[in-house]
Amino acid sequence: MNPVLPFVQRPVPAAAGIGLRAPHIERVLAERPPVPWFEVHSENYFGAGGAMHAALERIRADYPLSLHGVGLSLGSADALDQAHLATLRRLVDRYEPALVSDHICWGAFGGAHMNELLPLPFTEEALALMVSRVSQVQEALGREFLVENVSSYLGFRDADMPESAFVAELVRRSGCGLLLDVNNIYVNSINHGFDPHDYLRAMPHASVREIHLAGFIRKGHLPVPMLIDSHSRPVADEVWALYGEALELCGAQPTLIEWDQDIPELEVLLAEAGRAEERLHACRTAIA
C-alpha cells in the first residue's frame, strides 16, 4: 500500500552502500544495520503488491534508496519497451529514489528477451540510438538517469570508437549521469586487452554519480584470459586499486557493493562496504 505521506527526500551519500537482496531483507528490517544506503533491482519490484513492497516501503522510510534496472534494454534497435518504462516510472513515483539507473547494453530483439546485458557495437549508429533512448527515459521519468558500463565477453569487428569513448560520448550527448562500474572496467580490460587506467581517465568524471564494485571469476580452459562478471566473490585486489584511482579522478562518490550469486551472510557484505569506506575516507581526507 502506498504511504499516506510522501517519503522524506534522502540523497544517497558519498559512502559505501550494499545491494539489498532477498536473503537479507528480514535481518535488515529487524536489525536496521548502519548501512548508509541501499540499492535494489528495479524489476524485483515490478509486481504490483505483496511482501516485497511492504518491506521496501519500510526500508525506504529509513534509508536512502537507489533503483537499479537490468531489463530496460536501452540499446535494442527495434523498440524501447514502453510498458517496462511505464512500470519503472510508477516505481520511481512510488519510492522517490535518490538514484535511478540501468545499463549501456541491449537485451531484446523482435519481442524475444534474452534477459542478459548484451554488448553493443561501438558504432555511431548505436551511440545515436542510445543517446535518443536515454533522452526518452529521462523525459519519461522527469529526472536524471544514470547509465552503467557493462562487462562483456566479445567485441564486434566493426567499431567506430573504443568502449570508453562510446560511454563518455553517450553521457556527454544525452546529459545523463554515469554509474561507473570499476569491476566491469577491469574485467573488460582483461577480456579485450585495453589499459583500464586509460579507460578511467577517459571517463566524464564530473558526471559520475555512483560507483559499483563486485567480484569476478576466471573462466578456465580457454586459450585467452577471460573474466566473468559473476557478482559471486569479494572484490579483487586489482579492482580495489582501480577504485582508488577512480576516487582520485572523480572525488568521493556513492559506492555500492554488488553480490548476486552465492550470496553470503550480511556481515561479509558489510565488511566489503567497510573496505570501500576506508578508501572513501582517505579520499575525503586528501581533498580536505
Binding site: D78, F109, P121, G155, V224
Partner: peptide, 30 residues
C-alpha cells in the same frame, strides 16, 4: 551489419537458430 541486423543475428545465435552473428564478432584469440 546495421544494428538491427546484428541484433537479429545475435538473438538467433542465442536461441540456437544459426551462427551468422559469429562473422561479425572479433574472436581476438578465440
Amino acid at each position: 551489419p546495421r544494428l538491427r541486423e546484428l541484433q537479429r543475428g545475435f538473438v538467433d545465435a542465442l536461441l540456437g537458430r544459426g551462427d551468422a552473428a559469429a562473422t561479425w564478432v572479433d574472436g581476438a584469440g578465440l
